[in-house]
Computed example of a mutant assay.
Amino acid sequence: MLFTLKVKKQNLTLNVSALVNVVLKHKLDPEALLRAANSKFEKRFRAVEQALAEQGKTPEQSDLSEMDALWQQIKSIK
């Protein structure tokens, strides 16, 4: 399992590096893009937390499947 995790990390690192190269080639600001992506993620996650709270739950009281369903629902609306 450790070997598999190491390979996955290496692959992810290569993918991130390739993505940064594409961003720079197109003269985009990688930091601005990352900030925008983080902001979108935070807004969606807060919406998931709010939806769970409306059901009287917290993320700790939920499972990944339930949170993913809420995430997809929120993603399709916004």
Rank of each mutant, 00 (worst) to 15 (best):
A32T: 14
P30A: 01
D29A: 03
D29I: 12
G56R: 08
Q61V: 07
G56K: 10
P59I: 08
R44M: 04
E49Q: 07
P30M: 02
E31Y: 15
A53Q: 10
E49T: 07
L33R: 12
F45K: 12
R35G: 00
E60T: 13
A47R: 14
T58S: 01
E31H: 14
E54Q: 13
D29W: 15
K57N: 02
E54F: 09
L28H: 15
L52G: 01
L52C: 01
A47K: 14
E60I: 13
F45C: 03
P30D: 01
G56D: 01
A36P: 06
N38T: 12
Q55M: 10
Q50D: 04
D29H: 15
G56Q: 04
G56M: 05
K43W: 07
Q50S: 12
L52H: 03
F41E: 00
Q61F: 06
Q61W: 09
F41L: 07
Q55A: 05
K57Q: 04
L52N: 02
E49D: 01
K43Y: 03
L28F: 11
V48A: 00
F45R: 10
L28I: 06
E31C: 07
R44I: 11
K57M: 05
L34W: 15
E42L: 10
A37R: 15
D29E: 03
A36E: 08
Q55G: 02
Q55D: 04
A36G: 06
E60V: 12
P30Y: 13
F41R: 12
Q55R: 15
E49K: 13
A36S: 08
G56A: 02
R44W: 06
T58K: 07
R35H: 14
R46H: 12
A37N: 07
D29S: 05
E42Y: 11
L52V: 04
R46Q: 07
N38P: 05
E31L: 13
A37T: 12
L33E: 02
L34C: 07
Q50I: 08
E49N: 05
A32M: 09
L28A: 07
A37L: 08
E54K: 15
T58G: 01
Q61Y: 11
F41K: 15
A36D: 05
E49G: 00
D29G: 04
N38C: 00
E60Y: 11
F41N: 04
L34D: 06
V48R: 00
P30Q: 01
D29K: 12
F41P: 06
L34P: 06
